Amino acid sequence: MMINDFFRIGELISVHIQKSELERKEAELATPMLTDLEHIPQIFEWFCELSGDSGDGGKLNTDRKMQFLIIIMFFYSPISLTGHRIPNGIRDILTELLGYKSKSAVSNHLKNLVPTYDNYRMFREEVDLLYASIRSRLEDRGMLPYILIL
């Protein structure tokens, strides 16, 4: 009986190690690539240019708006794609760029971004292409920090 009790301590240590590693990994994955919100309008211009849309966010269809939102959230707040709060300032900029009357429209779209990306191949393929092109432009202009992958 006592050996079982001490086995639990080993299990507890193992759980603690796993929990620490998961917290470290979450922090790594949740760290945004971009923090300067002044880049968002430029990224929106590139998005419109690459997708063949006018620069008028109010005229974009819902799919295009959602594509732009998922790209911006991935750059600026990947944790928001898991249901966490959007950092201050981002929603204001997106509301204005996309021609929404209310900030809640941005939040409402966030709920559907990941399921839409996961479930609709064409949507996903377009997002992936647009993201890669925008990321390339950001890298070419030195707007993304250099990340050494070990």
Rank of each mutant, 00 (worst) to 15 (best):
N4F: 10
D5P: 00
D5G: 03
F6G: 00
F6S: 01
R8F: 01
E11N: 07
E11Y: 06
S14T: 09
H16L: 14
H16S: 14
H16R: 14
I17W: 01
Q18D: 10
S20E: 13
E21D: 06
L22D: 10
E23F: 05
R24L: 12
L34F: 05
H39D: 12
I40N: 04
P41F: 05
F44K: 01
E45M: 03
W46S: 04
C48E: 08
S51V: 05
S51T: 09
S51R: 07
G52T: 08
D53R: 14
G55R: 08
D56V: 08
G57D: 04
G57E: 03
G57H: 04
G58L: 08
K59D: 12
K59Y: 11
L60G: 02
T62A: 15
D63F: 13
R64G: 01
K65V: 08
K65N: 07
M66N: 10
Q67R: 14
I71N: 00
M73G: 02
M73A: 12
Y76R: 00
P78M: 07
P78Y: 04
I79T: 10
I79C: 02
I79S: 14
L81N: 08
L81R: 03
L81F: 02
G83C: 06
H84D: 15
H84I: 07
R85T: 15
N88D: 15
D92R: 12
T95K: 15
T95N: 15
G99F: 07
G99S: 13
Y100C: 13
K101V: 13
K103C: 11
K103W: 15
S104N: 15
S104L: 13
S104H: 15
A105I: 08
A105W: 04
S107Q: 11
L110M: 14
L110F: 01
K111F: 06
K111W: 06
N112S: 15
L113C: 10
V114Q: 07
T116M: 06
Y117E: 06
Y117A: 04
D118I: 12
Y120W: 14
R121T: 09
R121N: 12
M122R: 11
R124E: 10
R124N: 13
E125S: 11
E126D: 14
E126P: 00
V127F: 00
Y131L: 10
Y131K: 10
Y131W: 07
Y131I: 02
A132L: 10
A132R: 12
S133N: 14
I134Y: 01
S136R: 12
S136N: 12
L138M: 07
L138D: 01
L138H: 02
E139P: 05
D140P: 00
D140V: 09
D140H: 14
R141P: 00
M143H: 04
M143D: 09
L144I: 07
Y146E: 15
Y146C: 03
Y146T: 11
I147Y: 12
L150Y: 13
